[in-house]
Structures are given as C-alpha cells and as structure tokens.
Design a protein around this nucleic acid. Sequence first.
DNA 1: ATGTGACTTACAGTCCGTG
DNA 2: TCACGGACTGTAAGTCACA
Lengths: 69, 69
Amino acid sequence: MKTDERMIAFGKRIRDVRRSKGISQEVLAEMADIDRSYMGNIERGEKNVTLKKAYDICDALDIDIKDLV
Amino acid sequence: MKTDERMIAFGKRIRDVRRSKGISQEVLAEMADIDRSYMGNIERGEKNVTLKKAYDICDALDIDIKDLV
DNA sequence: ATGTGACTTACAGTCCGTG
DNA sequence: TCACGGACTGTAAGTCACA
C-alpha cells in the first residue's frame, strides 16, 4: 500500500468512527482542539498530520491509535 | 499517557527494533530516506514526525505501524 | 454541516560539521 | 556510531471568509 493511500485510509477511518458516534466534524474538531476546516482536510486525507495531532484526534474519539493507523 | 511520553515511547520502540535488526541509525536513516541527525531526534522522542515519515520508517524496519504507535 | 482557497506562523525535515 | 549544534527550506498548523 502506498503512503498516500494510507493517508486517505487514515482519514476515512476517522470519518467512520466520528459518524458512528453521531457527531459532526465541527464538534469533533472542537473536542480535539483543531480548526473545523483543518479537520475536514484530515478526513479527506489531504493533510499529512503529525503524530501528536493523530494522538489528539484519537483521544477526542476515545479510541486507540492502533485502530486508526 | 501524555503526548510527549508517547513520542518518547514511539522513539524507543524504533530504537529497539532497529537494534534487534543489528543496523545503525545511519543505515536505517538511509533506508527510510531520512536525514541521519533527524533519525536521532526521532529515536530520542524530540521530534514530532508526520504520519508519512512514520510509515516510511515502518517500511524500512519491515514492521506494521501498529507495533510502533 | 462541510468544502475550498488564501494566507501567516510554527516547526518538520535537510544539510553540514563537531566531539 | 551517535548526540548535538547552526542555518537553512518546505510544509504542517492554525485562522478566516465564502459558497
């Protein structure tokens, strides 16, 4: 699997988990202390987030990062 | 677990795997196409790597990223 | 509720050298 | 073989307005 594909898959998993919890991008963004538009970029796999950000998002979603990467 | 601690643990795991394979920091850096001094920073948990770089390192170490995060 | 573009600032990441 | 430094360059981080 190529790196770009992995980024997109990563974003998709965030979106899936978020939707399964029934919360909006906006709310999740606020929970993870991330700008709403930036969260959109991440979910679309357009941004190459740092590990710290990835951990922040996992904390907000209350899941293990292993389930996201 | 705090984010900084996670970064340090992440770096330690890289170092452990690398040593178990008997290769130097410099060689791993070359394999992962990362600067040698930067690889040192990562192993010490001093740098907040991007997901792409994390994937690159995993590929070089031939391990799953789940075993690193 | 989300996508997108334009923008600035912070820091990821490189390159070269030293002990 | 690795830690650490300085000086860079590229891009992630972060904010906003508009559709």
